[in-house]
Design a protein around this nucleic acid. Structure first.
Lengths: 282, 282
DNA sequence: GAAAAAGTTTCCATATTATGGAAAAATACC
DNA sequence: GGTATTTTTCCATAATATGGAAACTTTTTC
C-alpha cells in the first residue's frame, strides 16, 4: 500500500520500542507460568502420567502441581483420563500448536516459489492471509529495483482494496463478503477503489472465474498488484501470493503474462504444502 | 500384569484420591497462568499480532502482557518475529500439541479393531507403547469372562516381560535393546522370564521374523500374552496391540490362530492411523 | 526536517496472589 | 481388616505477580 523509493540497503529491521537491555537472557519471568510450561513439556514427553509422578519429577509439592494442572485443565491444555486418572495433553494445547504450523510452515514452504517469482518478474512478492475483513501480510521477497512496493510484514489493510484480499474474498464466496461488508463502510482510497458492494461482488465473480485477482490502483495511485490463492488439502483457500509494483513496469500489456506467473507460483506453493487446488481452465 | 478373578460388575472406575468436591467448576486456578493461556489462544487465533494489540484485546496492561510473553518466549511457546516484531505461536507449543495427537488419536482409532479382536478371541485386548525400558498400557477392551487379565491403563511394566514390550523391543533393534539393558538388572518374575540378555535377544530375533511376540508366563504364572506392532507412516513401530488371558483358554494349540488375529488387528490399526507396515510372510 | 505519536521494555513500591504443609477423603494393596 | 498411596481441599504466610510510570526506540505526521 505504500510505494517507497529507497536506495539505501535496509539493515535487518530491528524491533520497535525500547530495545532489550541485557545480552544474556535471565529475562523477566512469571514463576507459576514458568512451572506450568515445564509441566506441559513433561507430560507431553510421556504417555499418561499421574499427579504424584509429575510432582516428584518436577520437584514440586503435590498441591502446587494440582493447582497448576487444574488451571491447565480448565483451558483444555491438559486432561485427566476419567478411567485411569492419569494426565495427558489436551485439545487446547493441540489447537494452539496448530497455529504454529499454519503460520511458520506456510511461510517456510512458500519462500522458494516466492523467490523464483520475484526473479522472473522483478517485482516485490508478498504472501498474505485473510483475517476477518482485513488482509494480513505474512512475508515478502523484495524487488531489487530502486523504486518498488514495500510493506512491513504483519501489516493489515482492507481486503477489498488489495490483490491478496480480493483473491481470498473471491474464494470465500458472495455470502461471506456480503456479511463482512453489510455494516462496515467501504472507504475510497483512489478513484478506482471498488467502493460499492455490487461492483466489488462483480469483480470478485470475474476473479473467481479466471483464478487470479488484480488491484489496479485501487489502494495507491501508480501501483498495481496481481494475486492468486493458495489452497490447503481440503481445497480451501488459506492464503494468497501476489506481486506488486509501479504501473510503469506492471503495464496493462504485461498483466496476462504476469498473472500466469503468479498463478504458477500459487500452484507451486499449494503443492508444496500438500494442498490441492480446483481444476481451472481445462 | 495381574490376573484378577472378578465377578462383580466393575462400575466406571473413578479416579483415585480425594474426590472432587464441587459440582460446578470454579476450580482453583492460578491467575497468571490463566491469563497466559488466554493470550496463547488469542495469538493462535490470528496470524501475527503486536504486543499492544494483545494488551488491548485482553484488557491487560502492556507491562503484564510483556512479562507473560517473555516467559512464554523463553519456553519457545511464542516467538517474536525479528523483522516485524509481532508475536506468533512458537515451536514449543507445537511439540507439546503433538503429544495430544500421539496419545488420543491412536487410542481413538484403535478402539474398533480392539473391540473386534476382543469379540473374536474372548480375551482382554490391550494397547501400549514403549517408553524407555518400560511398556506403558494406554487402553484396553476387557474380556467379559469371569476370569480374565486386567491392567489399569497407565500402568507400566518392564518391557522384556510383556507381550507389548517384546513386540516393540524386537522392532527397535538389537543395539537399542543392548543399550537399554547394559546397566539395568533384569529381574525374574517366574521361571520362564528371559532373564539373560542373550536369551532375550534370541527371542526378539524370532519375534521380528514372524511379526508377533509372545509372553508365555514370563511375568505372571498362568498368563499368556500375544502382541503385534503398529506402525506409523514412516514404518516405525510406535505402539503394539495384545491379547492376554489365562493359559487354560490361551492354550498352546490356539497360539497360531490367535497370533493371526492379533496381527490382523495390528495391521488394521496401522492402516487406520495412516501407517505402513513392513511386508512379511509373502 | 522537526515534532508528535505509537510501540516496547524496564523499574519499583504495593498488596494481591501463589505457595506448600497438613489434613481430608477416597482407592489400592497386602 | 488394616496400612499405604493418591488426589484434593484448606489456610496462614510471605513471596511473587502486578500495573503505573518512565525510558528509549521507530514510525508517522505536519
Amino acid at each position: 500500500m505504500e510505494l517507497v523509493m529507497d536506495q539505501k540497503t535496509r539493515e535487518p529491521k530491528r524491533s520497535r520500542g525500547r530495545p532489550r537491555k541485557n545480552t544474556s537472557e535471565p529475562t523477566v519471568s512469571v514463576q507459576s507460568l514458568d512451572r506450568a510450561l515445564g509441566l506441559l513439556t513433561l507430560v507431553a514427553s510421556r504417555d499418561g502420567i499421574t499427579l504424584s509422578e509429575i510432582a516428584e519429577l518436577a520437584e514440586l509439592p503435590a498441591s502446587t502441581v494440582h493447582r497448576i494442572l487444574s488451571t491447565l485443565e480448565a483451558h483444555r491444555f491438559m486432561r485427566q483420563d476419567p478411567d485411569a486418572g492419569h494426565w495427558t495433553i489436551g485439545v487446547g494445547a493441540y489447537s494452539v500448536g496448530q497455529a504454529f504450523v499454519r503460520t511458520r510452515r506456510l511461510e517456510a514452504l512458500s519462500r522458494p516459489a516466492m523467490w523464483q517469482l520475484m526473479e522472473a518478474t522483478g517485482e516485490t512478492v508478498n504472501l498474505g492471509v485473510l483475517e476477518g475483513h482485513e488482509a494480513v501480510f505474512l512475508g515478502q521477497v523484495e524487488s531489487p529495483a530502486p523504486i518498488r512496493a514495500y510493506f512491513r510484514p504483519g501489516r493489515r489493510g482492507p481486503a477489498y482494496a488489495s490483490g491478496i484480499g480480493k483473491a481470498l474474498l473471491a474464494e470465500a464466496g458472495d455470502e461471506v463478503v456480503r456479511r463482512l461488508y453489510a455494516k462496515r463502510k467501504i472507504t475510497s482510497f483512489t478513484a478506482a477503489t471498488l467502493s460499492e458492494l455490487d461492483s466489488l461482488l462483480r469483480a470478485l465473480k470475474e476473479t473467481r472465474a479466471r483464478g487470479w485477482a488484480i488491484d489496479d490502483e485501487e489502494h495507491t495511485l501508480g501501483m498495481r498488484c496481481i494475486a492468486a490463492p493458495i489452497f490447503d488439502e481440503e481445497q480451501v483457500a488459506i492464503a494468497a501470493v501476489s506481486i506488486s509494483g509501479p504501473t510503469l513496469r506492471v503495464t496493462e500489456e504485461r498483466i496476462t503474462e504476469l498473472a500466469d506467473r503468479v498463478s504458477a507460483a500459487a500452484e507451486q506453493i499449494t503443492k508444496a504444502i500438500g494442498g490441492v487446488g480446483p481444476e481451472r481452465r481445462p
